[in-house]
Amino acid sequence: MFVGLPPFQQLVDAHWRDVARLAAAMAGPREGDDVAQEAWVRALRAYPSLTHAGNLRSWLLTITAHTALDAQRSRARRDLAAARPPEPAADLAPLRDERLWEGVRALPARQRQAVVLHYVGGLAHTEVARALETTPAASRRLVSDALATLRKVLGTGPEEG
């Protein structure tokens, strides 16, 4: 089956910065680097079996969001096994607005994926919905719940936009 996939390097060149941003938003800057790397490895492995070449950026960002959650789960398991407390938020220091990113990482998984894919990744609600296997309306709800939580955490009132 010929689906006309572009050379993978073209995806890397066009999207590696966005994948890195999304990974950092999901997992924090230090772990974000590993998440981005793992997301690219997964994407490269799966690439030849894609059945269409439509919206590859959205496909990459979706893989990145899923990879970040997997990494978080396996780290939680490791921390539990080692009876260590979860990693403190100190690794957020290189990011501006530390409390914001700390708040993002504390969100429930689906809210975090939705808000990060929508605002950091710039995906439309239809694309976020596809990534999370839900409806655009549900995506809208997840994003607005996430924003409400973040505003509460940051002590800012509701805003326009």
Binding site: V12, W16, P29, Q37, L44, Y119
Partner: peptide, 26 residues
Amino acid sequence: MDVASALRRLDVAARPPRLEGGDVFY
């Protein structure tokens, strides 16, 4: 702070991935 635009602005110091598992190299 406008939460939505802070999310949009996120910028990180990152580097391109180091990939293995290609089939063709150039």
